[in-house]
């Protein structure tokens, strides 16, 4: 099997050839500010080149567990207010990659990052050595594989992040909690039992509570680590629907081992294999007409 070790040729930073509705600025203006650069994807000559607004630019990222190099030279643009899915066989490093965005690896000793993940608009390198992981996590939310609400009331779970930030005003808290619960499509089910323990909810409700918990602090990027792998099909459908609506307010990065799910929810898809990026493109392209043989093999179920 042929794999690329150099940065995928499909992704090239260029001046946009055409502005999308997302940005109304002129190219000259864009260059003069610290705002998001635009990256176009040129897959082949027959396709029309589309541009995307970049929320986070992953540039040549390597990640090490001790001596083991788990991620190799990853370069991917993460589109602003779009859903980007990371797919690949288990052990390919997609979760490891996801956890770089909010520096969860810092909780384990002996881990090391190389390269940069530049968050726009303020050009913060998320994995830069001087950057505080806690600050990063305050800006980038995460939803885990297994629903992990705290053993507190529903209200306190959602208010958690706000309280961490020192917010004490009850009225504001209540308002923000309601907003977040509505955002996570849980308000109707939970509004009469806000003081009940979160552990009394069903699995799907718990996961939506975790989404609400993350939304309450208005993250810039929301990371999903296989959010439906512990849920039944109906709960899964609800979460997927929710993710689709979330793209209006937040940039979503989702790891999934379920290719149908990636195809259903994502705008862009990255296929990874053993720590490397094999292919990155619009989801429609990846799932209908991948450029790489390995991607096609995976999508058609030949391995993984």
């Amino acid at each position: 099997m042929q794999r690329t070790t150099e940065a995928p040729s499909a992704v090239r930073a260029t001046r946009p050839a055409e502005e999308t509705a997302l940005s109304k600025e002129s190219p000259a203006n864009a260059k003069s500010t610290s705002g998001a650069p635009r990256i176009s994807i040129a897959v082949d000559d027959t396709r029309q080149v589309r541009t995307l607004n970049v929320k986070a630019a992953v540039d040549n990222v390597n990640f090490y567990y001790g001596e083991h190099r788990a991620l190799k030279n990853l370069t991917i643009p993460i589109a602003d207010r779009q859903v980007t899915a990371l797919i690949g066989p288990s052990g390919c490093g997609k979760s490891t990659f996801l956890r770089c965005f909010n520096r969860m690896h810092d909780l384990q000793p002996g881990t090391r990052y190389e390269g940069s993940i530049t968050l726009h608009p303020d050009n913060l390198n998320l994995i830069g050595p001087g950057v505080d992981p806690i600050e990063v996590r305050m800006r980038i939310g995460m939803v885990f594989q297994k629903p992990n609400p705290f053993p507190k009331s529903i209200f306190e779970n959602v208010a958690y992040g706000l309280r961490l930030r020192g917010l004490r005003n009850r009225a504001t808290l209540a308002e923000e909690v309601e907003k977040a619960l509505r955002g996570a499509a849980l308000w109707d089910e939970a509004k009469d039992r806000l003081q009940d323990s979160a552990l009394a909810l069903s699995g799907g409700q718990m996961q939506r509570l975790c989404i609400a918990r993350a939304l309450a602090t208005k993250p810039e990027i929301l990371l999903f680590d296989e959010p439906t792998s512990a849920l039944d099909p109906i709960a899964t459908a609800k979460i997927e629907e929710l993710i689709s609506t979330l793209r209006d307010q937040v940039t979503v990065l989702i790891v999934t081992h379920n290719m149908q799910q990636a195809a259903r929810v994502s705008d862009y898809t990255a296929f990874m294999y053993i720590g490397e990026l094999i292919e990155f493109d619009e989801a429609a392209k990846i799932f209908t007409n991948p450029s790489k043989k390995a991607t096609e093999d995976y999508i058609t179920g030949r391995y993984g």
């Binding site: 996590r137 053993p151 958690y160 309280r163 961490l164």
Partner: peptide, 27 residues
């Protein structure tokens, strides 16, 4: 107290002390 509970808190931007006092101790 399981690790995923702590991760949930750290992922919200909590410090170690906040995680300890607000999640681990109640748990």
């Amino acid at each position: 107290v399981p690790r995923y509970m702590r991760e949930g808190s750290y992922a919200m931007g909590a410090t170690r002390l906040q995680t300890a006092l607000r999640v681990v101790v109640p748990g």
